[in-house]
Simulated scan of single mutants.
Amino acid sequence: MTANGSPPSRYASPPCLAGEVAPDYFDSLAVDPQQAVDVARWRRSERAARLEARAALSVTDRQSLAIAVATSLDAVLARLFPVCRDLVISGYWPIKSELDLRPWMIRLAEKGARLALPVVETPKAPLVFRPWSPGAAMERGHWNIPVPATRETILPDIALAPLVGWDREGYRLGYGGGYFDRTLAAAKRRPFAIGVGLQSAQLATIFPQPHDIRLDAIVTEAGLQWSAS
């Protein structure tokens, strides 16, 4: 129970939204509230710096980096998932100068994989995944990100998570909404989660908090950088 007598939320908001979090949210068995607030402040600063650096890259550079990341992903999948036919692979619709991996996804579909995109159907709740294919009808979703217009959902076998930052313990610095962590925590059948991003976004640590969930792998243009196996 929390200090005000209400039950704790199952899916905690991340510390990078500390301004929206009640003081009694923080787990006394893990970190003290001030430490969590300090981490939140540090993450906001690092997130802004990493996003600014990525946005400064030219379109040509981002295209080249996306091709290199796709090559790295091919190598990882060849080792861990040598047969992609009928695998459900969730990617992402690129925003905020993210690397565009949609051409790579389309090539997987040509090999028999089934594609999906993550969707925020309920704010501050786990993501759902809707099937997607090139040319599919789209609509504006949360944050105006295009999402498949269908209401059908699908469970991914592999889910890509775009990285703002990352460390060599398998942790991801994202945009601060906590959606991906909530999704992994709630999953009845957890997908193999691969963080994808830039080698230059590496951090010594993200100072993981109790709700942060390790990825299964981290891939950059330089190849596989971390794996849980």
Score class of each variant (00 low, 15 high):
M1I: 09
A3D: 15
N4P: 04
G5N: 10
P7N: 07
P14R: 11
C16P: 03
V21I: 15
A22M: 11
A22Y: 07
A22G: 09
Y25M: 10
Y25E: 08
F26T: 09
D27S: 12
L29R: 13
L29T: 13
D32R: 12
Q35D: 07
V37F: 07
V39L: 06
A40H: 04
W42H: 11
R47D: 09
R50L: 15
R50K: 15
L51Y: 04
L51E: 14
A55V: 03
L57E: 14
L57K: 14
V59F: 09
D61T: 15
S64M: 07
A66V: 12
V69G: 01
A70Y: 07
T71M: 11
D74L: 08
D74C: 12
D74S: 14
A75S: 14
R79L: 15
L80E: 12
L80S: 12
P82Y: 12
V83F: 11
V83K: 11
R85C: 13
S90G: 05
G91R: 07
W93R: 14
I95W: 05
I95N: 04
I95L: 05
E98V: 06
P103D: 03
R107E: 15
G112E: 03
R114W: 06
L115T: 03
A116L: 04
T122V: 15
P123C: 05
P126K: 10
P126Y: 08
V128Q: 00
F129S: 00
F129K: 00
F129L: 04
F129A: 00
R130I: 04
R130A: 07
W132Y: 13
S133W: 11
G135F: 12
A137G: 07
M138D: 02
H142V: 07
I145G: 08
I145H: 08
P146F: 06
V147C: 07
P148Q: 06
P148D: 09
P148E: 09
T150V: 10
R151E: 14
E152G: 04
T153E: 09
T153S: 08
L155A: 13
L155Q: 13
P156L: 00
P156I: 00
P156D: 01
I158R: 05
I158V: 14
A159G: 07
A161L: 14
P162S: 09
V164H: 02
G165K: 02
W166P: 04
D167S: 12
R168Y: 02
E169M: 11
E169A: 14
G176K: 09
G176R: 08
G177I: 09
D181Y: 02
A185D: 03
A186Q: 13
A187M: 01
A187C: 02
A187D: 00
R189S: 12
P191T: 02
F192I: 01
F192Q: 00
A193K: 01
I194W: 00
G195S: 06
G195N: 02
G197W: 08
G197A: 13
L198N: 01
Q199E: 15
L203H: 02
L203C: 03
I206A: 03
F207L: 12
F207R: 14
P208K: 05
H211A: 12
D212F: 08
D212M: 06
D216I: 05
A217E: 04
A217W: 10
I218H: 01
T220D: 03
G223S: 10
Q225G: 06
A228Q: 13
